[in-house]
């Protein structure tokens, strides 16, 4: 039995719990960009995003290995069925590395929320919780019953 090893195991378990807790609290939290950020319109334009055509456009960056990305994508598709004003653009991060760098995407899924004027009204990293995503979408988009 190794004393230092036992300590390392305990530290590792505590660290794992802390990281898991941190990820959980941070995943999907929407940040509203502050004024000084680089203009993002040309980047979204290159991705074929046309925010003027919807009340809210959600741009989702995903990677193929990312399970939470699939869940988020499904959730957005589901929201779209009753919210015609919601547009969703799916972007594969690996094949759009220039845009990934320009927008400083570090994790997937990363979501960008754009209003009809093309302004960035928020961004989030990690899978958003279903009810939070719905609330955010509903703050911008009318629901058709």
């Amino acid at each position: 039995m190794s004393g230092i090893g036992a300590v390392a195991v305990v530290v590792a378990v505590v660290m794992t719990a802390l990281v898991a807790w941190w990820l959980r609290s941070r995943d999907g939290a929407v940040r509203v960009p502050q004024g000084e950020e680089v203009p993002v319109d040309p980047v979204f334009e290159r991705l074929g995003v046309e925010p003027a055509r919807a009340e809210l456009t959600v741009v989702q960056f995903s990677t193929a290995f990312c399970g939470p990305c699939r869940a988020t994508k499904a959730r957005l598709q589901q929201l779209q069925t009753t919210r015609p004003g919601l547009a969703v653009v799916q972007v594969d991060a690996e094949s759009h590395l220039d845009e990934v760098r320009a927008l400083d995407v570090r994790r997937t899924p990363t979501l960008f929320y754009l209003d009809p004027e093309g302004r960035l009204v928020g961004r989030s990293s990690g899978a958003p919780r279903a009810e939070e995503l719905t609330a955010l979408v509903d703050a911008h988009v009318g629901v058709r019953p």
Binding site: V19, F65, L97, R101, R106
Partner: peptide, 29 residues
């Protein structure tokens, strides 16, 4: 070093979060 590898393995097993996978996008970037 072994402890850090254990953190990554535990995190993946317990939450499905894959640290090395996240680093993959950052490395590709």
């Amino acid at each position: 070093a072994t402890g850090l590898a254990l953190v990554a393995a535990l995190l993946n097993a317990a939450t499905g979060f894959c640290l090395g996978c996240e680093l993959y996008l950052i490395a590709r970037r």
